[in-house]
Write a protein that binds this DNA or RNA. Structure first.
Lengths: 275, 275
DNA sequence: GCGACTTTGTGCATGGGTTCACAAGCAGTT
DNA sequence: AACTGCTTGTGAACCCATGCACAAAGTCGC
C-alpha cells in the first residue's frame, strides 16, 4: 500500500502501500529497552497483511468451538498455501505442536499481540458521508481491538447528528479532540478535495497512523504511517484481469463451484465492510 | 483473492499475494489468435496496480490542461520513484519521447486500453446499505470507464428506492438482470452472511469479475476473477506499523510537513506545458 | 548542421517473497 | 520402548520486483 499499498496497497485496494521503509524493528534498544519484547522480530510486510486475514479466520473457528487446527486447514480457509502459512507463523516463533496442529485460542492471542491489537487502539473518523457511516457502523472494529471514539464532519447539517452511539462533531474541534480522546488512528473518508487538509490536521494532532479512502495520494511526514485504499483502483485491476481471462479462456468453462483452491488474486489488503 | 489482497493491496496498497498463476497473458494463441493484440504482453501484477494509480493522476493533469509530463513529475505525483514508473510504462511499449516526456492524453489512452477500460464495463452492485450507496454514488466510476447499471438488495424496504439515477431492484431478479444488462463486473457489499450466496448467483449469471467487501473469503470457480477488500485488515496492518514506529522512534519527532519527497499531486508548473 | 542538454528506456545487480522438500518432533499404538 | 503416522518448522532454490546507472534518442540553440 497501498503500497499496494496496498495495497496495497494498495493498498489498495488499490491499496497502495504506504511509503515506506522496511518493516524492520527497532535498530537500537534505546531508552525504552527494558523489556526484551520477544515479538519484535522483523516481519515482512506481506506477512503482516496475511496475519490479519488468519486472525479473522481464527475468530470464526473460535466461535465454532474448534480447539485445534492444522496448517492445511487454516491455510485452505484463508485462501493461501499451507507452506506460506507456516512460514508466516514461524516469524512469531514456535506456535504449534508437531503432529497435532495449532491451538486456536493461543495462536489467536499470539497474532493479536504481534499486530499490536492488544493496545486498544482508539480511532477517529473524519467525513461522515455514506462511506463514513458504513465504516462507523461496521461492527468488526470492536471485535478486533479497535474502538471508534470520535466522528467529525464539516457539514453543519451533519454535525450533532447521532451515528451509532457517538455524536458527529465539527471538524474544527479535531485537533483538540484527538488529544483529549487519546486517538491513535485516524480514518479519512471525506471528499478528495478535503483529504489533504484533514491529513495535515491529524498529523498536527499527533496521530501517527492514517487510513485514507481518498484517491489522491496524500503528503505526510516520514514518521506517519499512511495507508490508502482506492476503490476505483480495485475495479481497474479487476478489469485488467478480466481482459486477460476472457482472452485466454474464450470458450465458456464449465462452472464447478466448490473447488477453487485458489481464490483469486489478492495481493495485499483485504477487508470487510458490512453495511 | 481470497486472501487478499489487496492489496493490497494495499493495497492497496502492499500488499499481496495472489495465489494464482502468473500474470502472464494467453499461454497459447488458440483459436481467437487472429489479432496480434500488441498489448498482450506479460505485465507484472504489481505494475498493473500502479498503472491504475498513474491513470488517476493523468486524469488530474488532463483537467489542468497539462500537455506533456516527465517521468519525474508523474512519479512524484503518484508517490513512486521515477525509475519504477518508467519501467512500469515500458511494459506497454515505447510511450514517451526522449528528451521531452510523455504526452498526457496519449499515455492515458494507452493505459486505459492496456487495463481493458475501453470496453465500457457495466457494473452491478448487490447490497445497498451505507457502503453500497457510497459506492453507487462514487463519481470516480463513470470517469474511469465504468458504468453502474444495476442495484440490488433483499430488503423490501429498500427495493424500489431511487439511488442516483437507478432504482433498487430485488435480488431475486439478479441472474436475469445481469444477462439483460450485459453486466461484466459484480460488486458485493452485503452483510457477510449473504456474500457467498450472492457470489454464487453472480457466477451463475455468467459474470467473471467480482469485487467483494465481505471479510470472508468466497469460493468461486477458477475462471472467475475475484478481489476482496477487507477494511479491518487495513486497520490491523496500520496497527502493526504503528507499534513498530512508536517503538523505534520513542521521542516525538519534529513535525515537518512538506518534505516527504512525494508532493501530493501537482508537479507545479515547470517544464510542464500549460496552455 | 552540430554540439550540448534533457529525458526515456533498459541491462544488471540486489533484495524480498514464494515455494519445495525434508528433517525434527510429538502422539498414539503395538 | 520402539515404531508408525502425521504435522510443524525451516534451509535453500527460484522468481518477481526494486533501484541504479547508463546508453540511446530526441530537442533546443547557435
Amino acid at each position: 500500500m497501498t503500497e499496494t499499498h496496498q495495497t496495497h496497497g494498495s493498498v489498495a485496494p488499490g491499496v497502495t502501500g504506504a511509503v515506506g521503509r522496511s518493516v524492520v524493528g527497532s535498530p537500537a534498544p534505546s531508552v525504552t529497552g527494558a523489556a526484551p519484547l520477544p515479538e519484535s522480530r522483523d516481519i515482512p510486510q506481506a506477512t503482516v497483511t496475511r496475519l490479519a486475514t488468519y486472525l479473522r479466520v481464527l475468530g470464526v473457528l473460535t466461535e465454532r468451538g474448534t480447539i485445534i487446527v492444522s496448517s492445511e486447514e487454516l491455510a485452505a480457509a484463508s485462501g493461501v498455501g499451507s507452506a506460506k502459512l507456516r512460514k508466516d507463523l514461524s516469524f512469531l516463533g514456535p506456535n504449534g505442536v508437531r503432529g497435532v496442529g495449532y491451538d486456536v485460542t493461543r495462536l489467536r492471542a499470539r497474532i493479536e499481540r504481534a499486530l499490536g491489537l492488544d493496545r486498544g487502539h482508539k480511532v477517529v473518523l473524519v467525513g461522515v458521508g455514506n462511506l463514513g457511516q458504513a465504516l462507523a457502523g461496521y461492527g468488526g472494529f470492536g471485535r478486533r481491538g479497535f474502538s471508534m471514539v470520535g466522528l467529525f464532519d464539516s457539514d453543519p447539517a451533519r454535525v450533532g447528528a447521532p451515528v451509532g452511539d457517538l455524536t458527529v462533531r465539527h471538524v474544527d474541534e479535531l485537533e483538540q479532540a484527538c488529544v483529549e480522546l487519546e486517538a491513535t488512528i485516524g480514518v479519512i473518508s471525506t471528499p478528495e478535495e478535503a483529504a489533504q487538509e484533514v491529513a495535515d490536521r491529524l498529523v498536527r494532532a499527533g496521530l501517527r497512523c492514517i487510513l485514507s479512502f481518498s484517491p489522491t495520494s496524500l503528503d505526510v511526514p516520514d514518521h506517519v504511517e499512511m495507508r490508502r485504499v482506492d476503490l476505483a483502483v480495485e475495479m481497474q485491476v479487476l478489469s485488467f484481469n478480466s481482459a486477460r481471462n476472457t482472452e485466454s479462456v474464450p470458450t465458456a468453462p464449465r462452472v464447478r463451484i466448490g473447488h477453487s483452491a485458489v481464490p483469486s488474486t489478492a495481493p495485499r489488503n483485504g477487508s470487510v465492510i458490512a453495511p
